[in-house]
Amino acid sequence: MLTATACASDDEGETTSGGVPLVAKGTLTTCTHLPYPPFQFERDGKVVGFDVALIDRVAKELGVKQKIVDTPFENFKTGAFLNSGECDLAAAGMTITDERKKNVDFSVPYFDATQALLATAKSKVTSLAGVKTGKRTLGAQSGTTGESHAKEQGFDPVAFESSDAVLNGLRTGQVDAVVIDYPVVQSWLKDPANAQAFRLGEHIQTGEQYGISVKKGNDKLRAAIDKVIKESRADGGYNRIYEQWIGPLPQDQG
């Protein structure tokens, strides 16, 4: 697996034997936004994580290798890098929404997600209501459904460009609490220093599901992704990836 910054490929594209068009020969090019553990992040010079492992299976199905391209999260809403031919798909812990469906096509859902409130221990905040009554400062990652939910609840959250910036905002006192995807919080709290400094507050059930996005009309690639997701759930591969990168399976998980 290779990593790269956002730039157009110089390689000539191809169509696989199964009729799937690719922007670069021998490569399934994935747009993502780093870091977003446990879904995609760098470890020992490589990009790894839940999404990466899942898309590796798609690449194997197509007989090619995955290449990661780090891009701004905002572009996933518009499908900009898909439309420009820089990437074949986008995998970034991205929630399927009606607004995003206007610009991209999504795979079948591959992950059921919830939001969570994480606050500094000294703030003693455990809920969004507590943030409001305590006149605390709330943060969220820009362009995410966590930010949207906070705004829907009447907040004007401090917007951070990446999940790393969100965490740093908590550490440095820029904000007292943040709303972000629960699996990300799980990943942070594995660090003993974070577990001591921060407290997990309420879980926010938003009914969100993640999907892999492709360019509008790219039905061949979308079908290949759907096939891998469904087969992975059936053959136990999905569960193994989940346990490796996220943790114990939810009790209602297959």
Rank of each mutant, 00 (worst) to 15 (best):
residue 1 M to A: 14
residue 7 C to F: 13
residue 8 A to Y: 07
residue 10 D to M: 09
residue 14 E to R: 04
residue 15 T to M: 13
residue 24 A to D: 00
residue 26 G to E: 04
residue 29 T to E: 15
residue 30 T to K: 14
residue 30 T to V: 12
residue 34 L to Y: 00
residue 35 P to E: 13
residue 38 P to A: 07
residue 40 Q to G: 13
residue 46 K to H: 13
residue 47 V to Q: 08
residue 47 V to L: 07
residue 52 V to T: 09
residue 53 A to R: 10
residue 57 R to F: 06
residue 58 V to T: 01
residue 60 K to T: 13
residue 61 E to G: 02
residue 62 L to I: 01
residue 63 G to K: 03
residue 65 K to D: 15
residue 66 Q to V: 11
residue 70 D to A: 08
residue 75 N to V: 08
residue 75 N to D: 15
residue 80 A to Q: 15
residue 81 F to R: 10
residue 82 L to T: 03
residue 90 A to Q: 11
residue 98 D to R: 13
residue 98 D to I: 08
residue 101 K to F: 02
residue 103 N to Y: 11
residue 108 V to G: 05
residue 110 Y to P: 01
residue 110 Y to F: 08
residue 111 F to K: 14
residue 111 F to T: 09
residue 112 D to Y: 11
residue 114 T to E: 15
residue 117 L to D: 02
residue 131 V to W: 09
residue 131 V to R: 09
residue 132 K to W: 07
residue 136 R to L: 11
residue 136 R to P: 06
residue 137 T to S: 14
residue 138 L to I: 04
residue 143 G to K: 03
residue 153 Q to H: 14
residue 155 F to Y: 11
residue 155 F to D: 10
residue 155 F to W: 12
residue 158 V to T: 15
residue 161 E to F: 14
residue 166 V to E: 15
residue 170 L to F: 11
residue 170 L to Q: 09
residue 173 G to R: 07
residue 176 D to H: 03
residue 185 V to I: 12
residue 187 S to T: 05
residue 203 H to Q: 15
residue 205 Q to P: 14
residue 207 G to H: 06
residue 209 Q to N: 09
residue 212 I to W: 08
residue 213 S to G: 03
residue 213 S to M: 01
residue 226 D to F: 03
residue 228 V to C: 06
residue 229 I to N: 04
residue 233 R to Y: 12
residue 233 R to D: 07
residue 237 G to L: 02
residue 238 Y to I: 00
residue 239 N to Q: 15
residue 243 E to H: 06
residue 252 D to K: 03
residue 253 Q to I: 05
